[in-house]
Amino acid sequence: MTIENIFERLKKEFGDAILSETVEQNFEPFIRISPQNVVDIMLFLRDEEDLKFDYLACLSGMDYKETLGVVYHLYSIQHKHRVTIKIEVPKEDPKVPSISKVWRTADWHEREAYDMFGLIFVGHENLIRILTPYDWEGHPLRKDYKQPEEYHGLKVPY
């Protein structure tokens, strides 16, 4: 299935939930969706016979300065096609529905996105830090992150 066909299927099924689509040469085509419908759309993409996205290749947190976001890279091992999905959430209330029930892979990916960007994945069963220590303050990959002066008495700056 070509990327245009996949976008067509999504627009037909979900209509307003699809915000925009971008197909440019030399770039990975992607589609923007509204955060409320993430779980429905992901389940649709996973379960439809002709889509069958059975593999969540990557789930990344993003900081767009004004807003935060999540990027999902999906791949179908059976049909050998791929799609990129993006969502944006406000920085003040970064709540995203969790898809850890759709693909188990998303469990640790979402924990990482929470750890690094402070995105709150609603519905995740064990949303704790995964890379930094549990008592770490702040979310390091945010653009406004300030490096700490010390951690447990260890000086951090050079």
């Binding site: 390091p140 992150y145 490096q147 260890l154 050079y158």
Partner: peptide, 17 residues
Amino acid sequence: GGPYWEHGYHVLKGVDR
């Protein structure tokens, strides 16, 4: 600290600390 000496918020800058 090696390559992390400036922006490594999570790296100890030398184990001799």
